[in-house]
Amino acid sequence: MNRDITFGQYYPADSFVHKMDPRVKLILVVAFIVAVFLVKSLFSYIAITIFVIVGILGSHVPIKSILKSVRGIIFVVLLTAILNVFFYSGGERVLVHWWKITITVESLLFALRMALRLIFLVLGTTLLTLTTTPMNLTDGMESLMAPLKLIRFPIHDVAIIMSIALRFIPILMEEVNKIMLAQKARGADFESGGLMKRARALLPVLIPLFVSAFRRADELALALDARCYNATPHRTKYKVLKLGWRDAAGAFYSALLIFAVVAINASFWGLFGFSLSV
């Protein structure tokens, strides 16, 4: 039945970001990740936030779908934040000191930054997968990896593998759901007991899932052969990627972001006579 497996899945829309070349989007995401890691000052986060908001607005994807992806990792974010608060060594402005644990203003700020970093990383990559079809994404990767052909790296095969993986994820998710229902009907209990018990309770789901995945793989292999996969080394491409003005605009926009982050880090090299390091 219909389950909303929206995590990172393509959201069809006719927007600026959707129409951008997947290669450019991939490079931009990498640039964005670099920018996020370059950030030193909290002010830079404002620049990044603006960047992300503009990106979301330009994608016509409802904010709800995007926030869903963050909800999925909120546990990881909280965990890293808490660990960071406790294990951050140093800092002078002590807030709490109890036994071996010291919490300082600096440690709180550090934890906040790490949490923000994680959230921004997820937002950036989600925006990519929400606005780019899996096929486009693999086409983009294939095209970007083209130089690897020189060292005889099987780029096309890797692209097909990725495309197939993306295509089968929802199918296998549905399959998991079906098997779980069937085992529940036989009295299987996935909800109670300790960690070990729960892990063991998953066997009746995982084994049929693997068996089914192999059965599907068998048929898929035949289907690939039936469609003459690897028939010729001179494979053609139906969809040719083309750069457009949107891509230039996007590239310029990201360059601006990185510049802003670097500039803020350096307090605009003292040009305006104030410091932005917090």
Partner: peptide, 11 residues
């Protein structure tokens, strides 16, 4: 309850 293709639940 016997689901469709119940042989897929054997494990």
């Amino acid at each position: 309850m016997l689901f469709q293709y119940p042989e897929y639940q054997l494990f």
